[in-house]
Design a protein around this nucleic acid. Structure first.
Lengths: 109, 109
DNA sequence: GCTATTAATCGTAATATTGCAATACAATAT
DNA sequence: ATATTGTATTGCAATATTACGATTAATAGC
């Protein structure tokens, strides 16, 4: 089928999966790292810096945007992207709770 | 194409992307949560608890295992899965550094 | 009006993912 | 030996993703 059965999972699981999926690509991680470094926003510099075509970069940006991880505003001819603080905070909280739930040491496998 | 150009990204980006991708599915998040809760390992209880076929669960477990996030040992007839502490720690560090790199407040978009 | 410049979208090809039924395998029990 | 139980693998269909060239907006400057 190739169709994830989202209806059998709860909202938290689906939301976290969606956010992780949006980040689960080296190009999108690279894009986010670039935005994080030059805290001020960027635009199509990415096309030169990463070795991907403009259409491809634009697509990755769109995915990050629809996931709510970044936001963009028009800045003259180019477009300025930056982190969406709300989603970023949410991601930190959700992931923190998730990863932090593991208390090692209980010997098992 | 449909083929990620891993060669143009660095190891850190590729590794993080691979780990995130392994977790970026609600079923796999549910499986991990289940393992985290019953800190002691589990097996095919998942097939009953999640509403997915046995073959599908087995496939998701395999993905988590090949990504190094979980590990399994034979426990009589069934197989006992649990978190791989090394990878989990790595994930915490990598993600912590990544998410923590965002210092908000610098007004932008 | 035109013309660059920048980014989004469309169309397409190659590949990957998701899910399941059917089957195979491996360990134990009878 | 054979049956049972628990898990893995295979094969397949439906869908999603990745990447790119070509095209299409949208804006700025002339």
């Amino acid at each position: 089928m190739g169709l994830t059965k989202t209806e059998i999972f709860n909202d938290e699981q689906n939301q976290l999966a969606t956010l992780l999926k949006a980040m689960a690509h080296p190009a999108r991680i690279a894009i986010l790292q670039r935005i994080l470094i030059s805290n001020t926003c960027i635009c199509g510099d990415l096309v030169e810096e990463l070795g991907l075509a403009q259409a491809t970069i634009s697509q990755h940006l769109k995915e990050l945007k629809t996931a709510g991880i970044i936001q963009g505003t028009i800045e003259g001819v180019s477009i300025c992207y930056c982190i969406n603080p709300v989603t970023w905070k949410l991601l930190e909280n959700q992931l923190g709770a998730f990863l932090g739930a593991y208390k090692g040491e209980t010997k098992c496998c």
